[in-house]
Amino acid sequence: MDPGRLRMLGMDSEVWKRHASGWSVWTRFATLPILYLAIWSHVELGWPLALACIGVVAVWLWLNPRVFPAPRRFDRWHARAVLGERVWLNRAIVPVPQDANRKALGFSLLAGIGFVIGLWGAVWPSIPLIIAGTALTYCGKLAFLNVMAGLYDLMRDAHPLYRSWTQIPDNDNGRDRQNDAQRAG
């Protein structure tokens, strides 16, 4: 994905760091059943209110990577998965290994098929379709994220840009404030 498209989505460097938070990853991950419920609500509430519910979920999905603070550590699985996704989206500029790319595309396809099945089940109310779609989506997404964590591990030292994503500037100002606070306490 080119940088212009990422900017349109508002996914700048700071947002990506925040998205690497466990709170962001796991609350976003848990949103799928809520989206299906919002769609399903058209049965009881009608489409105008269901669309409002879907809109609320969409706003949450946009806000999610922005509301949680960046993690203190980037070595946890969820943080590495998010950083790997960022590496993968940059593959047109810095190529990634073919095997990782093939796996990522395959697992994305699986998650996408599951998502469509779940959507179908929510629109034409069918609990078995929603369950099957949710299971396929989660399996595909978890496998995709696992590939992304491995991709980040492989690529983090392949380009200076990737190394910079998790570096914390070392300066005297922060250390002096910390030392002053320790002496005062």
Score class of each variant (00 low, 15 high):
His19Pro: 01
Trp120Gly: 10
Val82Phe: 08
Ala100Thr: 01
Leu35Met: 06
Ala122Val: 06
Arg73Asn: 14
Asp153Gly: 05
Leu61Tyr: 01
Trp26Pro: 02
Pro71Trp: 00
Arg66Cys: 00
Met11Asn: 09
Arg183Ile: 10
Val96Gln: 07
Ala92Glu: 12
Leu63Met: 14
His159Pro: 03
Tyr152Arg: 07
Glu44Leu: 13
Phe107His: 02
Leu109Ser: 07
Met1Phe: 10
Ala143Ile: 04
Arg86Asp: 01
Arg18Met: 04
Val147Glu: 00
Gln167Asp: 01
Leu105Gly: 12
Phe115Pro: 00
Ala100Asn: 03
Trp23Tyr: 15
Val43Gly: 08
Leu136Pro: 05
Leu142Phe: 13
Gly185Lys: 08
Val25Gln: 04
Thr166Pro: 05
Ala58Trp: 11
Tyr138Lys: 09
Ala158Asp: 07
Met155Tyr: 00
Asp157His: 11
Ser108Phe: 14
Asp99Ala: 14
Arg7Lys: 13
Arg91Asp: 02
Ser24Cys: 11
Ser13Lys: 14
Val82Met: 15
Gln98Tyr: 07
Gly121Tyr: 02
Asp157Ile: 01
Ile54Phe: 05
Gln167His: 10
Ala104Arg: 01
Tyr36Asp: 04
Ala158Phe: 06
Asn90Glu: 13
Asp157Trp: 04
Gly150Leu: 03
Trp23Ala: 08
Val147His: 00
Asp2Asn: 15
Arg73Ser: 15
Val116Ile: 15
Ala181Val: 07
Pro169Asn: 05
Leu119Lys: 07
Gly10Asp: 10
Tyr36Gly: 05
Ala135Pro: 00
Gly140Phe: 06
Asp75Gly: 14
Leu89Ile: 07
Gly84Glu: 06
Ala122Cys: 12
Ala122Met: 08
Leu9Gln: 15
Met155Ala: 03
Gly150Pro: 02
Arg177Gln: 09
Pro71Gln: 09
Trp124Leu: 11
Trp23Thr: 13
Trp23His: 14
Met1Tyr: 14
Leu37Cys: 09
Arg76Asn: 09
Trp26Gly: 08
Met11Arg: 08
Arg163Val: 04
Arg156Gly: 01
Arg102Ile: 01
Phe107Asp: 00
Arg72Asn: 10
Gly140Ile: 04
Pro128His: 12
Val116Gln: 10
Phe115Gln: 06
Pro65Cys: 09
Arg28Val: 09
Leu83Cys: 07
Arg72Ile: 00
Asn64Arg: 05
Asp99Asn: 14
Arg80Ala: 02
Leu32Val: 10
Arg86Ser: 11
Trp165Gly: 02
Asp172Lys: 14
Arg183Tyr: 10
Phe74Gly: 02
Trp23Met: 13
His42Cys: 05
Leu49Asp: 09
Val15Gln: 01
Leu9Asp: 10
